[in-house]
Every structure is written in structure tokens, then in C-alpha cells.
Design a protein around this nucleic acid. Structure first.
Lengths: 336, 336
DNA sequence: TGCCGTCATATTATCGATAAAATACGGCTT
DNA sequence: AAGCCGTATTTTATCGATAATATGACGGCA
């Protein structure tokens, strides 16, 4: 059976296609009896509008994309906050994933693909400033994430350095003196981990402690497994430490595993803090102290900026640094 | 600046639009010099195909949707497995979310929205058999999830009862006699939790143990917070127990929190097992014993069924029950 | 020289909806 | 009765690409 088109409905109702369109979109007024006939025909034939044709002609999809490196953890949680905000405007949110590889990310933001959407939230992971700069799209777009981006883009990122400083200072205050920066790096290309390293460093200096480069422990990937392995290596090496600042909660979870396996008690022997305050942080014993990334606020800010652009605003782009706060739990000595 | 269309490229290259289309799609052969001129024009103007127009005319989007109740946890992990399989066919995966409410789920699978996709993977959460039966779409579709579905749909689900039985039997074997079924229910409308309850019950009977209705502990939502609260209530009530089968790992995590807060040791005082074997299960001390839902295999099976349909197969639908296995970790006494 | 086949490229029609312009019609004024 | 107006509805053109069909150019062969 072929699809039912608007023309079929028009024929059934004895009117023109345009009248059907007017009834369904409430654009031009239609007399009640006519309207009723059209609605009856729609119901009788089970007609549903062809959104693709509408998009081609009207240039609107009522759909927003959130483009993320992976569907996991952090991004899943943020996406669940963003979705209701988009839906509140009568639009629809879809997620696309880029695998964190620059090629995929470029493909995902190719002008061709963006055509499907009225607006785009792009969580930047693989693209650097130059690549982003080459991206010329007329679509409303808001960038999220901890990389450096060209000025012309609206951008929401976290107060990474401040968050790391808060977490580290908190552990210093409660007695730690040798704190690892797990998953951090000196490589400034990866802003998230280098900014957080900078915050860790600043807390140490503020307290008059030495910064030991051996305490900066890189990870191969941002996974719990990599965090666990990296920390086990440190423990095996014999390097003494009494605190761990993990660059994300996912990595902190790996650290928890490594500490438990090694018989190190949290927070008695080692204090531990993470970053992102994922749902899971509340429940993993003894409770993971974490920098709260304020997902809700980030989502609201980003959607607000996007909404403004979709409404036609063309003023200068904004660069928002979302404030963070420390949520203290049992993995540090200030906690319950 | 207006968009660059295929006609613009054709003019620039001094050929017809059709020739441009043939060059880009490699449908009809084009002479090398002409081809080169077209490619040059494409590059010069920065042309990118309008996918919406292509879709309208050619009826193909090269996009597959995975429709899920939420972007969190389980679904995020599955989606990350599915994406590469879809991409291997040169297609693109997008996620849509339904909020687990029947209305949203109905809207998401309305014929109108499905038009955007060449195929759909639908994780059924809110829709019952009747509602699904009313869904008449010509699109290739595969259902995932633990609900009962009409025969005409391809469907992949887990061996829920067997998984729950395995986990429960394992705890019995290692000494538990009073095992809670946390998050389970007698309500057969919710197949996932009632099937898993049935498996728990069977393990008890097989071991000659009594089934105590007080041991079936419902949860208000499938979240860690609800799992924690429900288990704390049980503990406060004084009902004795020495094992917990949690209906999902997310709920098991809540149980871990509740047990830790109450000073009950895992696995010495209480053994604990979950279901889904999320990444997190490996890392939460002492390691969460869990029924492995075989995400990879489920993803492959579902994508295989979908691929077959997209290729034109019209044979009878298949109903696959994916096998599960028990992964033993430290939260039960068989573990390390 | 004339006819045919083949390959390359161009034309035409179409996917389904909608914006913009055109028309029909009844009522009301003068 | 002629003219005008506002409302309801229809007609026409279009979004941009592509399937199907048509045209053109050239070489081969009798």
C-alpha cells in the first residue's frame, strides 16, 4: 500500500491540498464544516504528514541535535537534562555520537548532516580550534566542553581549574600532603585535563606544598579500567601518596577499585575526590566526594543560548563558564 | 548567503545538474575531464548535498534510530555497542528518547517521525502489546526489551528468568537462605521485573526453600536512590535477610549504599547480585556479581535482524531470547 | 555513403508539502 | 444595480535532488 499523502486526504474531503494544510497547521482560517470534513478524512485514511517534504519546503524540522563523543555516563546524564528543555519548546531532541575521533566529529558537523536540525548542541571532544574555525555553518549552534573554541561560537564550559582547586584544597585541609592528579596531563591540547591539573597545582602552591611531576599520572583513556590500571601501577612503583584527585568520576571509580584491591582504606589511608558528580558518586561506598558540574545549570544555559539563536538573535556569541561546587562525601575526611 | 545547490555547481562546471548528481553518486559513468570539472566546482563552491531533498526523492536517509526510554546507564552502554555496527554499513545512528511514558513513546514511533529513518530499533518500555499492535508502520523495525510484543515484530529480549535463577542459585549455593528480590514485583504487566522474580522464585524452590512474599521488595523507580531507600526500609523493619538479588545493577548500587550505611558487610553478612553487568559492576568494591546481559551479542542480533529487513527480507519475524551468564565477583562468596 | 549501436550528457517529471498570489462568493454600501 | 470588501478556498510555483527517459556525438561496418 502506498503512503497516504495530503492530496489523498484532499480528494477524500473534496477540498484542495492547501486547505488540508491550513487545517492541520492552523495557518489560514478554515470554516468549521470544512475543517470537520478534513479531520474526518485524515482520520479515515490515517494520514500523517511527511516531515521530510515539510522540511524541504518550510525549512524547519523542529528537531535539535546533541552531538556527543559517546552515549555513556556523563553525556547520557547531561542529555537527560537537556531533553525536557528542548521538548518544552515543542521541539524534539536527538543524540548523535562522534566516537571522539576528529574525523567522525567533522562528519557529524558537516553542513550536510546539520541540515536535519534546527539547532545543534555540540560537545566538543576531538576538534581543535582551527578545525572548528573552518566549520562554516549557518545553523544555530552552541558548543559545550572543555576545549578552546573560536570566539564566534556560543560556548558553555565548566570552571575546571576552580573545581580541581576546590577538591584538592579540601583534601589538603583534611591532612593529605601527597596528592596524585590521576588522569591529568601537562599536555595543553587537552584542556580539560590540563586545566584541572592547573587547579590541582594551584591548590598545592596555595598551601605551600611542592608540586611533584611524578604525581601527575596520565591515563590511556578516560575509562574506569584505565584509571584503575594507572593507579595500580603507581602503587606497585612504591611512590608514596595519601590523596587522589581523579579528573573525572569515571576515573575515580577505577581508583576506588585499585585502592580496594590494594588494601588501602578510603578515606583513612587515602582521600579521594572526583569531578562531575555523576549519580553514581552518591552510592559508591563510602560516597565519592566530587566536583559538581551542575549538569542542570549547564543544560539550561546551553539551551538558553541555543533557543535565542533559533529565535533569530544575531548578537555576539557568549562564552559562559559555569560555576562548580564541591560535594563532600565519605571518600574525604570532611564527609560523613 | 544562500545555500549552494546542485544547480549552482552544474552552472559553474558547465554541465547539467544530473551530471553533477552522477559524479557524486557514481550512478552513471561520467568522462574523466567532466568529472574533474565537476569536482573542482564542488570544491570551489563548497557544495554539500541537501540530504532532505535526497530523502524526499530517493526515499533513503542512511540513518537508523535507536529509541530508548532514557539516555542513562544501560541504554547508553547498549547504544555505544550498536553504533559501530550501524556505521559499518555506511549508515548513521541517532538516539531518541521517550521518557518511558507511553505518550512519548507513541509519539516517537508515530509514522511521521519514523519517516526520518531507514530503520528503527525500539527499546520498549511503556507500550503494552495492544498499543504496539496498533502501530502500523512499513519501516523496518526491531523491538528490544523485556515486554511482551505482538508476533509480527522482530524482537530481542534477555533470558530474564534464567538470569535471575542463576544469580539466586549462586547465592544459595554459597550459603544465603533468605534472599530479597529487590525491585521485583508480582505485577505481570512489568515483564522484566516479574520474569526476574519468577527466576528468583524458581531458584528458591529448586533448593527446597520457602518463598516468602515479604522478600519481594518493590521499588518506586528503577534508580539507585529508590533501591537504596527500599532496602533501608527493609533493614529498619527488622526483617532478617542474608542475600539480595537486585533486579538491575543500578538498583544493586543503591543496595550497596544501603548496606554500607547500615554496617552490613558484603559478602560476609549479605551477598548481593545484580543484573545487566554494567561497566560499573567491575569497579564498585568488592565487585558486583551480576547477570551479564551480553550487550554485544544483543546489539549484534538486533542489528542483524534490522539489517535483514532493510535489505528487503519479508519472512516471518523472529523472537530471539538472548542467553545470559553469571559473572561472579566479590559481592558474593564465590568471588575472588 | 548510410545506418546502427554505444557511450556520455541533458531533459523532464516527480517526491509531498507549503508560501504566495489568485479567485470565488456573499454581504453591504450608496 | 453597480461597486467594494473581507473571508474562504484554490491555483501556481517552489524547495533540491534524482529516476526515467531522451538526445547527441561518434565510430564501425556493409
Amino acid at each position: 500500500m502506498a503512503r497516504v499523502t495530503m492530496a489523498d486526504v484532499a480528494r477524500e474531503a473534496g477540498v484542495s491540498a492547501m486547505t488540508v494544510s491550513n487545517v492541520l497547521n492552523e495557518r489560514l482560517p478554515v470554516n468549521e464544516p470544512t475543517r470537520a470534513r478534513v479531520m474526518a478524512a485524515v482520520a479515515a485514511l490515517g494520514y500523517e504528514v511527511n516531515l521530510t517534504a515539510r522540511h524541504l519546503r518550510a525549512g524547519r524540522t523542529d528537531t535539535v541535535a546533541f552531538i556527543v563523543p559517546s552515549f555513556h555516563d556523563y553525556f547520557g546524564e547531561i542529555a537527560d537534562k537537556i531533553a525536557p528543555l528542548i521538548e518544552a519548546d515543542g521541539r524534539h531532541l536527538v543524540l548523535e555520537r562522534t566516537s571522539a575521533s576528529p574525523e567522525y566529529e567533522m562528519a557529524a558537523v558537516s553542513v550536510a548532516r546539520l541540515q536535519y536540525y534546527d539547532g545543534v548542541l555540540l560537545s566538543v571532544a576531538g576538534l581543535d580550534r582551527d578545525q572548528l574555525d573552518r566549520m562554516r555553518t549557518p545553523k544555530p549552534i552552541v558548543l559545550l566542553g572543555e576545549r578552546d573554541v573560536p570566539d564566534r561560537f556560543n560556548h558553555v564550559r565548566l570552571a575546571n581549574e576552580e573545581g580541581a582547586r576546590l577538591a584538592t584544597a579540601h583534601m589538603i585541609e583534611h591532612g593529605s600532603r601527597r596528592i596524585l592528579a590521576l588522569g591529568c596531563t601537562f599536555d595543553t591540547a587537552h584542556m580539560m585535563s590540563s586545566d584541572r591539573r592547573a587547579g590541582w597545582e594551584r591548590a598545592l602552591r596555595d598551601a605551600g606544598l611542592d608540586v611533584d611531576a611524578r604525581h601527575v599520572v596520565p591515563v590511556s583513556t578516560y575509562t574506569s579500567a584505565a584509571g584503575r590500571d594507572a593507579l595500580l601501577d603507581v602503587i606497585a612503583s612504591g611512590l608514596p601518596f595519601d590523596g587522589v584527585f581523579a579528573v573525572t568520576d569515571v576515573i575515580a571509580l577505577g581508583a576506588i577499585a585499585a585502592l580496594a584491591e590494594s588494601g588501602l582504606r578510603v578515606p583513612v589511608d587515602v582521600q579521594l575526590a572526583g569531578f562531575d558528580n555523576l549519580d553514581m558518586a552518591r552510592f559508591v561506598p563510602p560516597g565519592l566526594t566530587s566536583v559538581d558540574a551542575n549538569h542542570e545549570g549547564v543544560a539550561e544555559t546551553a539551551v538558553g543560548l541555543l533557543r535565542r539563536q533559533m529565535a533569530g538573535w544575531t548578537g555576539p556569541a557568549e562564552h559562559v563558564v559555569a560555576p562548580v561546587s564541591l560535594v563532600v562525601r565519605g571518600s574525604t575526611r570532611g564527609g560523613a
